[in-house]
Design a protein around this nucleic acid. Sequence first.
DNA 1: TCCATGACGGCCT
DNA 2: AAGGCCGCCATGG
Length: 119
Amino acid sequence: MSVDPNEPRVVTAGFNARVYAAVQRVPHGRVATYGDVATILGSPRVARHVGWALAALDSDRHGDVPWHRIINGRGRISFKGDTVRGARQRMLLEAEGVVFDERDRVDLERLRWDWPEAD
DNA sequence: TCCATGACGGCCT
DNA sequence: AAGGCCGCCATGG
């Protein structure tokens, strides 16, 4: 569980908090990919960890961190075996007006959110 | 320490 | 277009 502060890591101790901060900036009705978030945080290779951070998000924060707006690079909702979360995520997105095509994909070209350069 | 496992992504079939 | 492989990085057994 402990992390040696002397050992250089791509994913640092405050990683999760940084993920949440970035996700909070994705506006209603828009989406972003795990890779996008990772890139914004300066580490394009840790897309998997972004998903990991969101999985660790406490349910009490689901209200202020729009975790459902984060999907995979193919425009689909990601899930291995958790179909329950997947269904809820889709429901939340559709409630914001996000449309899924017959292949269960959203139009990334149109809905993908790219963070403004300045915070 | 080695090995399997992920809310991923890019490339190749 | 869809699916399989493999590379990434940190975790947990």
